[in-house]
Each structure stands twice: as structure tokens, then as C-alpha cells.
Design a protein around this nucleic acid. Structure first.
Lengths: 164, 164
DNA sequence: ATTTTATGTCAGCACTATTGACATATATGC
DNA sequence: GCATATATGTCAATAGTGCTGACATAAAAT
């Protein structure tokens, strides 16, 4: 029955298609984050901790300011999470050498272990999805997700390489 | 420099590729939900309200149980959100005819308006990303996101029809 | 010397989610 | 009909993440 409607009415198809995309985003993201959530639980951490661990791991020596920009949250929101991670020795802060106001962030060995543990499951999930979908699909996935992302954000995770 | 590493070391490519995917998921989802968040703010609602509005709109007459299953949250979590939506006349509850224990959920006219308002922006964002990426890319996007989603969930938004 | 920036901290509030406990109405199995 | 299971609701306590506002300090920049 929906097939008939679809053939007869391209607007219906379009609506269904977009609706499906919205749901895919919801379910995929939820399941994707669930992997890491389970690991985090055992450390009494949440997603915010994960994001800090992740981004500091990707770019060791980033300043608090950089981190706030990339996370799009306020310093007060970051404060608790970062303090916990520093107190519990997952992250180390070093005073900046050129600008001594800065606290540059680094993962400790403990922090790196956690980073790997968290990434492992998510990477496996993605790798499996990539493998099943094939190379062309992967390219499409990237194109569409990039298109969904605001332009400003698109730089955040591409820039560093291009400076080398 | 990273290009050389990539060519020389397939493992590096793979890691970078997966890392990029993880970040794409993070940024795309964040920007994607930001659209609706802005609308919700003016109603003093949060994302939980959005999800309820969305799923009830997709399947009018669903039971509270169905909704809990699809959202994967507890009834206590849903309680406040649903009560607010009912109190403020966005959602109507009707006693089930076959099972009078059930409270079947429907959007009121007001609820439908909000649903459209919320979906509009997200749909536009997706439609634009689809348009830019092209049909093949869209197919790849769907394949990969479906692969990322847990199998169980893949049924959740397909199943109900098959019971009728 | 003054202003701006990077960072931190305290306090209070909101939203979403959890678990546990208990209650009510209704359906179902025996 | 009675016992049990199910669908729903509610109260209470707790956790995680985010916000704004206010205030403070050190260091850089002008």
C-alpha cells in the first residue's frame, strides 16, 4: 500500500525518505554512544568525560580554550568534568611555555588507556559497518554527514593536518 | 607529511579513517539536533519532549509501553515529559479499546503544529545534505548508518506495521 | 598603567535520566 | 472466582550535563 502511494506521489517519498534519515541519525547515534557509555559507567564518568578524553587524546597540548571551542560548552560546564579527570590522574595540565596563562592538556598513561578502551568499541562498530557497506557507501556516508554538519565545524577536525 | 604516512601504512589510514568517522558522528549529530533545540527552547521543552512528539506523530495511537521501548528509557523518565505534553495539550491520551489498561497516545492539532515546526528544520538540513551529496551518497549514508545501528533497533521502527 | 585574555571557582538552576518502592486498574490463566 | 501478570502512574532520591551570573587571579597586550 505504501508502495502505491510512493509511486503516485513523489512528495510522499521525499517525506518518508527524510523521516527515515532523521530516525537513522537518532538510532545510530544512540547505539553508537552506548558502547562507550558502558565503559564509562565503570569509571563513574559520563559522556562529557569521554569527549574531553577524546579530544585531548587527538590533540595533546591543546589549551582549555581550544577544548571549550571544540566542545561548544561553557567553562563552568567543563570545570567539573576536567577537575575530576585531573584529580583522578587521567589528564595532566602543564603551564604553557609561550603563554603562561594557558593550561595545556595532556593525557596521562592512565588517560591513554581509557581513551583506547573507549575508542576500541566504537571503532570496531564503525569498521564493521564500513566493511559491510563497502567503500562507495563509506564515501557517501562521509559526504552526507559532512553536509549535515555546520560549515564552521567542518574545519575543526580537518585543520590540523593541513598545517603540516 | 600525513599523506606519506597514509600511503606507507595502511593501519594508519584505517585508524585515521575511523577517527574521522567518530568525529563526523559527533559533530553531525550535534549540529543536527541544534536546529530543533532552538525551537524547543521557546516552548521550554527539551529533547525528550521532541522525541515523544516525533514518535507519537509517526505512529498515532501507540501505547506508553511502545513509546518506552522505542525510546529505551524508563517510565519514570518519560513520566514528567509526557505529563507536561498532556497538560499543555500537545498530546492526548485515550484509553485503549481492546485493552483498557493502555493509554494510547495521539498528537493534538497543537502537537502536530509543533511536530511540523521541529521536523521542518531538520528535514531541510538533511534534504540539503542529500542534494549536495547525490543519490549514490545517500544510499551509502543509509547503508553505513544502518550498519552502525544495533540490529534490534532496526526492527523497532519497521515492526509495528507488520503486526497489523 | 590599564585593559584584555585565559583560567578557575562558587552558587544556583534546569533538564534528562536512573533506581527503588508502592499503588491502581485491567487482563489472563487456571 | 482467584491469583498472577501487565500497563500505567506516582513519589522520592540521586547522577550527569548543561546553563547563567558573579567574582578572582595571573599574565599578556596595548
Amino acid at each position: 500500500m505504501s508502495d502505491i502511494r510512493r509511486r503516485a506521489n513523489p512528495l510522499f517519498l521525499r517525506e518518508e525518505e527524510l523521516r527515515q534519515a532523521i530516525e537513522l541519525m537518532f538510532f545510530a547515534y544512540r547505539d553508537f554512544t552506548r558502547d562507550a557509555d558502558q565503559v564509562l559507567e565503570s569509571y563513574n564518568f559520563g559522556r562529557a568525560h569521554h569527549r574531553v578524553i577524546y579530544f585531548v587524546g587527538r590533540e595533546p597540548g591543546m589549551s582549555v580554550k581550544d577544548l571549550l571551542n571544540i566542545l561548544s560548552i561553557t567553562k563552568q560546564s567543563l570545570s567539573r568534568v576536567l577537575s575530576q579527570l585531573v584529580d583522578e590522574d587521567f589528564i595532566e595540565q602543564r603551564t604553557g611555555s609561550t603563554d603562561r596563562r594557558q593550561r595545556l592538556l595532556y593525557l596521562t598513561a592512565k588517560g591513554q588507556n581509557l581513551e583506547h578502551e573507549l575508542s576500541k568499541r566504537q571503532s570496531q562498530r564503525i569498521a564493521e559497518a564500513y566493511r559491510l557497506a563497502g567503500a562507495d557507501a563509506v564515501e557517501g556516508f562521509r559526504k552526507v554527514l559532512t553536509g549535515i554538519t555546520d560549515e564552521k565545524e567542518r574545519f575543526a577536525h580537518i585543520n590540523e593536518d593541513s598545517q603540516e
